[in-house]
């Protein structure tokens, strides 16, 4: 049963680790590492060096090496900024953690040419069903119209989240939305997980 499979692969998102904003920034800190190591080595060389003349020659040589290293680093850096984060082609899923009713979100994104071409968001409930046209019914019937309408509004909202992601290609360009619902937070979390898969 498909549901069983998803439960197995689902994990609480504790400790998902990634570079901050993708390859570009990762490369930047790489440049920092290079600089740090070179200056440290150079420092060591200075202390061992026998004369000032020798030091001057050494520092000239090292300046040139530093220059070349920086040039390479910056060229790589430039290339990175134009390419930005690369997403693999394919279909990727991500899951959210559970809410207070043990329901969790599943996002499936389709990537083509580094773009999100399709996004689907469903919420799995504790009984193994998804929140759809029956969500808000009690034993298969609409017991309370107000309750059912509200539930269906939530289902409609879930579709909108997915459509908006395809249109905007990112999550509103903000780190968090104050006042967002649990469903939106689950969507957000599942999108992060799915895109992290696509970046691997």
């Amino acid at each position: 049963m498909m549901h069983d499979v998803t439960v197995k692969t689902r994990s609480k998102n504790v400790g998902t680790q990634e570079t901050p904003t993708g390859a570009g920034t990762g490369r930047t800190s790489g440049a920092g590492t290079g600089l740090y190591q070179l200056t440290t080595r150079r420092k060591a060389g200075l202390h061992q060096g026998p004369s000032r003349r020798n030091i001057s020659l050494k520092s000239q040589a090292i300046s040139i090496i530093l220059s070349v290293v920086f040039m390479v680093v910056m060229l790589v850096g430039c290339k990175d900024t134009t390419r930005e984060v690369t997403l693999r082609d394919g279909t990727f899923s991500g899951f959210s953690s559970e809410d207070d009713t043990a329901a969790y979100g599943e996002v499936t994104v389709t990537i083509q040419d580094n773009k999100i071409t399709d996004c689907r968001f469903v919420t799995w409930q504790a009984d193994g069903s998804i929140k759809d046209i029956d969500y808000g019914k009690v034993n298969g019937v609409v017991a309370n119209q107000d309750y059912y309408d509200k539930a269906q509004l939530a289902v409609e909202a879930m579709k909108q989240y997915a459509q908006q992601l395809v249109q905007a290609q990112d999550l509103e360009g903000v780190d968090v939305i104050a006042g967002a619902t649990i469903a939106y937070n689950q969507f957000n979390e599942a999108v992060d997980a799915a895109l992290a898969e696509a970046k691997k």
């Binding site: 570079t19 901050p20 800190s29 790489g30 920092g32 937070n185």
Partner: peptide, 16 residues
């Protein structure tokens, strides 16, 4: 970024 280079900034998240 340079001074954090020895430990590149890792991102961690948690939801509950």
């Amino acid at each position: 970024a340079a001074h954090e280079a020895t430990a590149a900034p890792l991102k961690a998240t948690v939801s509950f």
